[in-house]
Amino acid sequence: MNTPEQSQLGKASAYVDQYDASLLFPIPRAGKRAEIGVTGASPFFGADIWTAYELSWLNTRGKPQVALVHFTIPCESVNIVESKSFKLYLNSYNNTRFTDAAEVLARLRADINEAVWRGGVVQSSVGVKMIGPELFDREPIYELDGLSLDRLDVECTRYQPAPDLLTAATEEPPVTEVLVSNLLKSNCLVTGQPDWGSVQISYTGPQINQEGLLQYLVSFRNHNEFHEQCVERIFMDLWTRCKPLKLTVYARYTRRGGLDINPFRTSHPQALPLNTRTARQ
């Protein structure tokens, strides 16, 4: 079983420029999920929505081609793909000749699908959408909708996840709210390098104390965990402590190494959000 410490994170890496699917490094989701109390059927649905900004390959005449790629990785998949390995894998396309963009897209889908379902039964395919240069100007920039928690003037003193900060008015009628913050920051599980993000929390249920929620989100500031794991931790802390009837947590992290990762977790089936980047992305 792969562990984060066995990956190329924090290590000097040779940049292979010939196609090599073996560079992908899957890490099982199960271990971190057990830490937050998810050991059987998961209480959430969703996906990890990735954007690759630095994909290039050669056509049959050796002329470079470029594209953006959106990946949708089901959260039910057995593994995440460690992001540096993803970047190294994409770099391996740089000096490889392909017949056309369709061949590249097929390789991407097959390789990522194999990596995230390795060790388990494939339940659904990874989504891959390639965007050519002629469509780059149609890629919009939107901020997450919702009431900003960042307007609150709160004192913040805790910088490791503190779920005890979360409270809800369980004695009052349920409400429906969408709350957002740009103050989410965590660190890479292995290297400790900062990961910056924005988060949107949509719920129906007892009204969540907004000051405590903002302090809780800030408490991730010195926490070392991958993006997907942070979002699942936030979801489970809200789910168990605030008892919402419905809950969705969606985070958009700024890119590193030409990749951004945007985990989406929801308690109820619904359409995935459009992969539209924020200004910081």
Rank of each mutant, 00 (worst) to 15 (best):
C230E: 06
E143I: 02
D237S: 12
V66R: 12
E5M: 07
V175Y: 06
N59P: 01
D137R: 14
S42N: 06
V180D: 07
N224G: 04
C188A: 13
Q200A: 01
V16N: 13
G212Y: 08
W196K: 02
L152Q: 04
G31H: 04
V249Q: 08
R255K: 05
H227V: 08
Q193D: 05
G62S: 02
G37A: 06
A14F: 13
L23T: 08
E35C: 05
R252P: 08
A110N: 12
L55F: 06
H70D: 15
T60N: 07
T157G: 14
E114R: 14
A168Y: 11
P133I: 04
V180L: 01
P273G: 01
E177F: 03
T204I: 06
F45E: 14
G119H: 13
N113Q: 10
R29Q: 00
S42T: 11
L272E: 03
L214C: 06
F235T: 09
V81Y: 05
L184Q: 08
A52S: 12
I201N: 08
L90V: 14
A101Y: 09
T248C: 14
F220L: 01
C230N: 13
E177T: 08
P263R: 00
K87N: 06
R29Y: 03
N95S: 13
F44H: 11
M236P: 00
A102D: 13
A102S: 12
F45V: 00
P43L: 02
S83T: 09
S202H: 09
K11F: 04
Q6S: 11
L68H: 14
V190Y: 07
Y19K: 07
T191S: 11
T99M: 09
Q193I: 06
P43D: 06
R109I: 00
I201V: 09
R241V: 05
S148I: 01
E114S: 14
V121A: 15
V81T: 10
T170Q: 13
A12D: 13
Y142K: 13
N59M: 03
T204F: 10
L135D: 15
W57G: 08
K246W: 03
E35Q: 15
L213M: 00
A279C: 07
T157Y: 10
E5G: 00
H70M: 03
L105F: 02
L274D: 14
L179A: 04
I73A: 10
A169N: 13
Q18V: 15
I234H: 00
R109G: 12
S186A: 06
L166N: 01
L179D: 05
R280F: 07
L217H: 08
A279S: 11
A168D: 10
I208E: 03
G212E: 12
Q160P: 05
D100H: 02
K63V: 15
K243S: 12
Y19Q: 04
E35Y: 02
S13M: 10
V116I: 15
Y142E: 14
E103M: 09
A14P: 03
M1P: 13
A251Y: 01
W117R: 00
I49K: 02
A162P: 02
P273R: 10
E134V: 06
A162D: 15
V122D: 00
R277W: 01
P74M: 01
D153F: 00
K87A: 01
T276R: 14
H268C: 04
N113C: 12
F45M: 11
T266L: 02
S148E: 05
